[in-house]
Amino acid sequence: MPLHSLARLSPTAVLGLWRLTETPAELWRGLPQAAAYRALAPATADATRQAQWVAGRVLVHELLAELLPGQLGQQLVVHNDATGRPWLAGAARGLLVSLSHSGAWVAAVLARGGRAGVDVEMIRDKAQRLAGKFLATPEWAEALAATQKSPETASAHYTLLWSAKETLYKLAARRGIVFREQLRLGSFAPQESGEIPATLMLNGALSRHCVCYFQPAPGYVLTYCYEPGA
């Protein structure tokens, strides 16, 4: 199975990447609790979406095996709440999970306590076309300045900004967030990998965060943020 990488973010958190090459049938054979998952699987998804969905659950179980001793992790099942956010049913003991998929890549963060968000995106021009909907005016002005110097990087840059805000949204775990107003990105010098300073504005309070990013493969960008519990 093409588990691409496992990276420890801390003693209690792990980031995993899966490169999708299998069919849904092949992925189902590697999934613990398959009967429980078949009852949860989206019924109308095409073969690509099915493969992404199943691969995400297979990846989470790989991370559970890394983070938990013995067979405990194999007894858990990934569910989704009303907002689509994943959670673990069973004796999860404070475990949290964040999942994302795009194209041939699936990403997940599993942690014991704290907060986490992860997002993987195929680089396309869609984020640039929709920039005015999710970027605040200063963020958009900075993006324009950065991409004017190297127009060939525009799609990658705007996709990175969108991905960073998606990760912040997952970290916040709140419904109804306005991306332009409540999720703000600070200045950074774009590289192949790095960090983006960020601010969440929730209930009249500000909190500072750091979104990490890198390219898992040409044509993709991945962002994540993990913050241990107090």
Rank of each mutant, 00 (worst) to 15 (best):
I123G: 04
G229N: 13
D125L: 00
G16Y: 10
A43E: 07
G117C: 08
A131D: 07
T83A: 12
A91S: 08
F179A: 14
R19F: 01
N80S: 15
L6C: 10
A205S: 14
T21C: 02
T12Y: 02
E195I: 15
S187P: 04
K170A: 11
L17N: 04
A111K: 03
T153H: 10
L20F: 07
A173Q: 09
T159P: 04
W18E: 15
P228L: 11
E22T: 08
V106M: 03
V97G: 10
G229V: 06
G90N: 09
Y220Q: 14
L88A: 10
H4D: 08
E121G: 09
G229L: 08
R129W: 01
V77C: 05
G132N: 01
G113R: 03
T48P: 00
P32L: 01
S10Q: 12
Q71I: 00
C225K: 01
R129F: 05
W18V: 14
G176T: 12
Q191K: 15
T223K: 01
L27T: 09
P42F: 00
E66T: 13
A116T: 14
A127L: 04
L202I: 10
G204S: 06
Y224I: 04
M1E: 02
P32M: 08
W18Q: 11
H79T: 05
T21A: 15
A198M: 11
F214Q: 13
P11A: 14
L206S: 06
V60W: 09
P138R: 03
I196D: 07
S155F: 05
T137F: 00
C210H: 10
H79L: 04
R124S: 15
L110R: 12
P2G: 11
A39W: 01
R112M: 07
E181G: 06
R8F: 05
L40M: 11
F188K: 02
Q50W: 02
G186E: 12
S102Q: 04
A131H: 08
L168G: 05
R29T: 10
L95R: 11
S98D: 12
L95D: 13
L95S: 14
F179D: 06
W53R: 10
W53S: 01
H61G: 14
L63Q: 06
E121P: 09
M1P: 11
L168Y: 03
L6Q: 15
